[in-house]
Amino acid sequence: MRARRTPEPYLWLLFSGGGVVAALLLPVLVLIFGVLAPLGVIEPPPAARVRALLDPLLVRLALAAVVGLCLFHAAHRIRFTVEEMTRGGRLDVVLAPLCYGAALTGTVIAVLVLF
């Protein structure tokens, strides 16, 4: 148990930030865009309306940050949960790069889509 450099504090901050953002924003967004609009309970916002919403630079920056944080949150939890459920702590050398790599890729895709 000697001290050494570890990336865990930064990964934990991303995980926590993503957890807060996901908790505050995702349920209402999934409710509107994923459930109510497709089911026709509410009038689905037309494409022009969504484009208008995404027009301000600040909104697009915020959405990219939200998507990135949510993905890193998920990557962190999935990494540890898979290792615990399979009793496979040895998998970490493969699983950690895989999970955070996927989160990073997703974030880059989100940025490319939005800008």
Binding site: M1, T6, E8, W12, T81
Partner: peptide, 15 residues
């Protein structure tokens, strides 16, 4: 106690 606790086997091991 930072070097004792802020390790992968310390607080970062807890889920």
């Amino acid at each position: 106690r930072f070097d004792l606790l802020a390790t992968d086997e310390g607080v970062w091991g807890c889920t």
